[in-house]
Structure formats: C-alpha cells, structure tokens
Amino acid sequence: MKFPAGAGHFPPRPGNGGNMYDLIIIGAGPAGITAAVYAARKKMDFIVITGDIGGQAAWSGDIENYTGYQFVTGPELVSKFEEHMRKYAIETKEGEEAVEIKKGPAGVAVRTTKGAYEAKTVIIASGKKSRELGVPGEKEFKNHGLTYCATCDGPLFAGKDVAVIGGGNSALDAALQLMRIARRVYLITNAPAFTGDPVMLEKVRASAAVTSMVNTEIKEIIGGKMVTGIRIKKDGTEPTLSVGGVFVEIGLIPNAAFAPEVDKNGAGEIKVNCRNETSVPGIFAAGDVTDVPEKQIIIAAGEGAKAALTAFRYLSRMR
C-alpha cells in the first residue's frame, strides 16, 4: 500500500486543543481490532473504546472458515486477535461504551459511559447484539432464568422445562442443544412457521422432548427470584406456561443507536460505501454494524483494515 510522501507519521495530539486524537475506534471485535492493528502500524494517535474484547466472535463456537485456521474456537481466535493488538501499545478503554457521537467543526466528539473524547476521525465497529423481546419481566429475569446464550448457560437447566423463543437457525440450534439437557423444550415463534434450516427443523421435530408452537406471542416473563413461567398469547387466549428457563434467540440488532447522524438502512445498519465511508465525513464504519453484505469474521476483519486505511488517507488530506 503506497501513501503520499510525508503522510506516514502523525505527531501526537496535533493541532487544535492538544487533546484531539487522530482516531477513535469504537468496538473491539474482529473489525475494531484489525482497524487498531492497521492504525498502530500507521502510527496514528488513537484509542479503542469498547465494552468487551472479541464481540460476537467471542461467542462463536467452532470456526472453520477463517483462513489459516482449519479449526479454531471463537475464544481461541479472539485470544489471538487480542495478542496481536497487545503487541502494539494501544490505549484500550475496556468496559466503556459509546453513548453518543457528534460531528463538530473540528472533529468528532465521543461521549461514553465513563468520559468524553474528541478525535478527527472515528471508526464505528461496534457490531451487533442480541435482540430483546421487549416484554415485562425480561430485564428483571436476565441471568435469573432468562438468557441469550444457550451454549453458555444451557447445562444449568438440566431436567427443567424450558422455552426457546425464536424461529430461525439460532433458535433451532438452541432447541437442539437443550433437548438433550432439559426435560421439555417449548420452541415458540410468533411467525406462522419456523424459518431455520430444514435439516435442523427435522431433528427438532423428531425429538419427543420438543413441543413446537407457532403464531404464539410472548407477553410476559413471570417468576419470583427465578423464572417460573411465561405468559403467552395464542388463538386469542393468554395462558401461562410453567418453565424454569427462557432462551431468547430472536436475532441480532446493530449497536448503532449512539450515532444518530449517520445514515442507516431499514435494519438499522450503518450505510457505508466500498471505502467504509458513512454519510458523515470523518466517520467511518466497519463490520457487522454496517450494511456490508455477509456477516463473517473474516469479512469484518477485512472491513476493519479498509476503514483504518481510509481514515488514514482522510487524515493525510486534512493536514
């Protein structure tokens, strides 16, 4: 990659204010970490602000399509990413999340759960998170019988009756795991049919432990200290199902609410062009938070690299 002569190094905190970074990267999943590695190698003055390291990749099971690794688990690959990032002295604000970003005349202001920062450019690489049901009781019973990760918490529900909410592949996958552990699995979708892979659906249907319910709405999560049931709505009635566990698997939503100024598509994903530019100059985005087709770890990583290089070019033009 060739850059214009003289554009190679930026002095620390140059220009106005003395406290403005070249770049702030929001998120440290595959996109954010790769952007950080590229930014470090361009010697940009930057920080990474992130709730956690690895993002969704940390939650992935077996990965067999990241080039160079014929087989690797999500946590192992994330450890490798993190190790690579730590090779450079990158200032990482972990456990800190962006609340609002706002473009100003000089740069972009970033307000977080712990502070406020300013940079000439920002890369949004904040990924996606589990979609919530939005029903009463959901927040109160999170980790008290309600979970968004069947892989993690499933074994704790051995011998119990549980409900899996959702109709896609992640819901079917959860049901497949839980039917071997739980006593009874209610698989519930508000849609008229399940949309997951037919192969998985067949396996779920073949199990005597699974009861499938379509056209069924969840109205409320009920319990005392822990979940004891769910109120559902089906055929005009609202019965209560006794369950000791609720697994919510209704898809993902982009973490982009903190960036109201940038254009998004109907799914709430940030629109980017092929250079990872958003509708706001100086704000770039990469990975699963964007409308890039295909959400894959290797694609997110590549997008992160592109975003960092575009930010670098943008800064070169600013000088």
């Binding site: 690895g54 450890s79 918490d153």
Partner: peptide, 13 residues
C-alpha cells in the same frame, strides 16, 4: 463454568 461458554474459557485463560 461450563465447558461450552466462551467467557468461561476467556476467564480461565
């Protein structure tokens, strides 16, 4: 921990 939980693995690591 459970053997399948990614953050358990990361914690132990």
């Amino acid at each position: 921990s459970t053997p399948t939980c990614p953050f358990c693995i990361r914690t132990k690591q």
